[in-house]
Design a protein around this nucleic acid. Structure first.
Lengths: 348, 348
DNA sequence: CTGTTAGCGCCTTCAG
DNA sequence: CTGAAGGCGCTAACAG
């Protein structure tokens, strides 16, 4: 608003002049790592800098040093609690490592993701974290792989979240094992006839979870009939529509519907209710992720807990770690049984 | 993972050599705005760049051009749907303006916010968007103001979200008017005895909403008695605890509790339920923001709708606009009545 | 310990 | 239209 005349930010040069020392001394006092500078000079420089409101130009530092302090984060959908929680973890950890994070959104479009990776490469980030969705049949996969390999060869570090079988460091999420455990637990509660809300074909995370869930059922002697499943988007509305579809097709005697993530499960519960069915009572519902809000819906949602923020923290740590092997223990996963899947004697 | 020898990213110099042209020509072909370069040369350069996997070094460009393509975004809490929705808007808009966004989290701590602003200044961002919380009695306010003014004087543009009375561009949210309208509407539904979950003392957004709500009640001849209110944090758990406190103090014949945001309202509803009370039936609840999940809780939550993503979009647009006056129309706000506040005859 | 001097990678006048 | 050269803000040898 203020219409004061516009100037340029103070440069190190200005500070040096103001303090009556050389550029080098100013640089050393302000940003030099091993301080070997007369305390008196140092003070003068610090004061001059304060007086001038000097802030080192990070771009210039990056050019001169040949290295940045940036971490690039790619997510599918920022507003989705799954990704925003991971992002919170990354940003928090970055902060304590004095790193800056830049963020972009892929919308689960792998062509777009590839573009973004290329673009972000321009920032010469120290680290690139890909929390976007992997897919099995990705046509852009090779190009992405090439791009990322080139990036790593120039000193960058890439970390994937959730996906496997990539030639890069990965924070593995136990999508499959978690879903299998969930299935086992549900069978234990007395459920026998299952349905599921699946994601778009080929999207890894979703396929893994469904596969794990199926595995668990099969191990117990049950199955997941195709006519009790529906494919939709990964979103709340996807879940809503998917459930509507199941209902429209005749949900029949399905006892429990597994939605491959909590947001979908929540949409699904609303769809049930809107159709006059009581989630948990008429049809049980289970999700995956354990996002914060699932404790506040009615009935509270049974799900598989994933420590999302910690996943973000780990991703950055893993990226910064010296050795590849340092993936550490797998991210702990835990089935959390809540009201949406009562013991079968109680309901359903 | 790959143990290939590590090299450096291709530079413009490399591209020029590979293409057999001068640095200048390469620069002009690749990034020059007004392209006045022989098409044949241009092709050669483009090919060379592709062959080398060249990506312009943004830091170097920034230093040379004296301007970046960065927008810095400060939020209080990334994982909170309110902020993540705004962030999604900012990131989306930034993307279509070919800008990069860097993000940091203040935790609603104004000292921290000041630090972050200083730090972000080092990036020389074109724009700085502050969606963090303002407070009335902020001891760091002057310092922040000074820092931001200095930033604007060196060509930066700052935009606040939600707060007023700042000497900077602002995307005004009608916190007060929205809450007032909500109060009026609630009175219209037959409610007479109100309580509220307030935020930490001094936090602008919260105070404005409570003030507006009170205003609306008073205008209708009612009030918000202090003993029916509790102060807590802005979070879901804050809402839960606040409601617990109200209940512990004896919620008495309170008919409706206004929580100053949806996350708190959702926590509050859970607290009611955990205490054996039925939200909407025993005690009505209303929130503010209209975050996505409020449609999926039971009862669905009455609230004041704020187009959060659009707020983010507007913030960036406003920052980029030539003229100050271009704040455009105020962000539309709208009371959305849902099941958590049934017409009084129906319940309560 | 301090100052001088090359760069870092890129852009942009300025002559040709 | 092209190339040579200087400069952006900063760092990092290198001498002193």
């Amino acid at each position: 608003m203020s219409q004061t005349s516009r100037s340029t930010p103070a440069t190190l040069h200005d500070v040096a002049r103001e303090a009556g020392v050389s550029l080098a001394t100013a640089s050393r006092s302000l940003n030099g790592s091993t301080r070997k500078v007369n305390e008196a000079y140092r003070q003068k420089v610090l004061e001059a800098a304060a007086r001038l409101g000097y802030t080192p130009n990070l771009s210039a530092q990056a050019v001169a040093r040949g290295t940045t302090t940036t971490v690039a984060l790619l997510v599918a959908d920022i507003a989705d609690p799954y990704f925003s929680s991971i992002a919170a973890g990354v940003v928090g950890q970055a902060d304590s490592e004095r790193l800056i994070v830049t963020m972009a959104e892929t919308d689960r479009d792998s062509a777009r993701e590839l573009e973004l990776v290329r673009a972000m490469r321009g920032q010469r980030p120290r680290v690139m974290i890909l929390a976007s969705s992997r897919r099995a049949d990705d046509p852009a996969a090779d190009a992405l792989q090439a791009e990322l390999t080139a990036y790593e060869q120039t000193g960058g570090r890439v970390v994937f979240i959730s996906s496997t079988d990539q030639a890069f460091r990965t924070v593995e999420l136990e999508n499959r094992a978690g879903a299998r455990a969930l299935a086992t637990e549900m069978v234990g509660l007395g459920y026998r006839r299952f349905g599921a809300l699946m994601g778009p074909e080929g999207l890894r995370t979703g396929e893994d979870r469904i596969a794990g869930f199926t595995e668990g059922l099969v191990a117990a002697g049950f199955d997941l009939p195709a006519d009790r499943t529906a494919r939709t988007r990964f979103t709340r509305d996807g879940g809503y529509e998917g459930m509507r579809e199941l209902i429209a097709r005749g949900i029949g005697d399905t006892q429990l519907v597994f939605a491959l993530n909590d947001v979908m499960a929540m949409g699904a519960m609303s769809a049930l209710r809107d159709a006059g069915l009581e989630p948990g009572l008429d049809v049980a519902v289970a999700g995956f992720d354990d996002i914060p809000t699932v404790r506040d819906v009615t009935p509270t949602l049974t799900t598989v807990r994933l420590p999302l923020e910690e996943v973000g923290v780990r991703a950055l740590r893993l990226a910064l770690a010296e050795s590849d092997a340092d993936s550490g223990s797998p991210v702990p996963t835990e089935v959390v049984v809540r009201e949406s899947t009562p013991r079968l004697a109680d309901a359903v």
